[in-house]
Amino acid sequence: MSATSADPFGPRAWKGRGAASNPEGRFESIRHQAEDDGWQSALLDQAAPRPRTEVTEERARSVITRNDSPDIAFEQAMNPYRGCEHGCIYCFARPSHSYLNLSPGLDFETRLRAKGNFAEVLRAELARPGYVPRPINIGSNTDPYQPVEKKWRLTRAALEVLLECRHPCTLVTKNALVERDLDLLAAMARERLVQVFVSVNSLDNHLAAKLEPRASAPHRRLKAIGALAGAGVPVGVLVAPIIPALNDHDMEAVLERAHAAGARCAGYTVVRLPWELKRLFREWLALHAPERAAHVMSLVQQMNGGRDYDSDFRTRMRGQGVFAELLRRRFELVCRRLGYGRARELRLDASRFVPPREPSPQGELF
């Protein structure tokens, strides 16, 4: 039996993976229900292989997406990968894997898609007549520096195109692999073309290893903040997501450590549980924090008008109610004390954008 098929033994903790099961996506018309009849179950349990990462190359037709959500700071975004090997159990992007007829569970972190022609399509889109340059966020859905980027180098290829065209961008990551591209990022920073945000939501390595099993450890992300700041790259910290009664107590410490490392702007969001993510997160709590699972979900529901998730643009990022207000006040107090700016305050320069040209055997005269 494949570890990513219906599991007759129910949800389980897989080493190096966030999800405990692989439920069908919400668009599937067939549901699989496995039953254990008692025959050879122990043997099958021992033989179940660990889920392995599989990357399939796809040819993208477009890479820049547009956004008009009033609670999101950027208008344009792009993501080199579908799915994310980091395996963060709370990732709001998990349900997007259902559009590929794959599970938001283990499939999301093991069956990845890499847009092999990412830089080529980006170049073509930037060269379109009438294109208006606005900062592009890289990593709005899945992490552009997840482990498979070491091999595929799609994010680096995109940065090379953006630097060549003098096009501004922002980056969001929780992987220290971002340090690999300091040469490009530093060059972009000198021309006010880039801002990087590093996500750190806890300083507890043991908790992070379960919440975000293949992301860089918290202390390593803080070191990456220092490396970026030392290279002159504007860098901020995102305390995201905050999960009540699980990692919220670390908010002030994260902001203090990140500021000491060189972060100069900060933001936060609360956990969001859309679609299939509700079930996956409850399974994770039952396995890894059973003694506080009911309390965590009670507070989550208090911040979402009595439900597991409320998609209202006005409240989905910060929550509502007493606990959400407490988080807001705590965040603002420590930011004021440390002198943090807001995450969207930096003005990137799009005035020197030069559309890319098709390569010519005759070379360039001007």
Rank of each mutant, 00 (worst) to 15 (best):
R292M: 01
Q301H: 06
V322R: 12
Q320I: 14
W284H: 08
R314I: 15
H295E: 15
M317F: 01
L287T: 00
A286Y: 04
L277E: 09
R316G: 04
R318Q: 14
S311I: 09
L277C: 01
S298P: 00
F313W: 09
L280F: 05
L277F: 04
L277W: 02
S311N: 15
Q302D: 10
L299M: 13
E291M: 02
R279K: 14
V296L: 04
R279H: 13
D308E: 12
F281T: 14
R282C: 09
M303F: 01
A289K: 03
V296M: 08
G305C: 00
E283F: 07
L280D: 00
A294N: 08
L285T: 02
D310A: 14
E291I: 01
N304L: 08
R316E: 10
Q302I: 01
G319V: 00
Q320R: 15
A324V: 06
Q301C: 08
L280A: 02
G319N: 07
H295C: 05
R307F: 06
A324G: 14
A294W: 00
H288W: 07
P290G: 02
R316I: 09
A294R: 12
M297Y: 01
R282I: 06
M303C: 08
Q320N: 12
S311E: 13
S311V: 10
E276I: 10
N304M: 06
Q301R: 13
R307N: 08
F281K: 08
L277Y: 02
D310R: 13
K278I: 09
M303I: 02
Q301K: 10
A289H: 12
G305A: 03
H295N: 13
R292F: 00
A294Y: 02
A289I: 05
R282S: 14
L287E: 03
L299P: 01
W284I: 07
R307G: 11
L277N: 11
L285W: 05
S311F: 10
V296F: 11
H288R: 06
A294Q: 09
R279C: 10
G305F: 02
F313D: 10
L299T: 09
L287Q: 00
G321D: 03
R318K: 15
R316H: 00
D310F: 01
V296I: 15
G321E: 01
H288I: 03
A324I: 12
Y309I: 08
G321N: 00
M303R: 02
W284G: 05
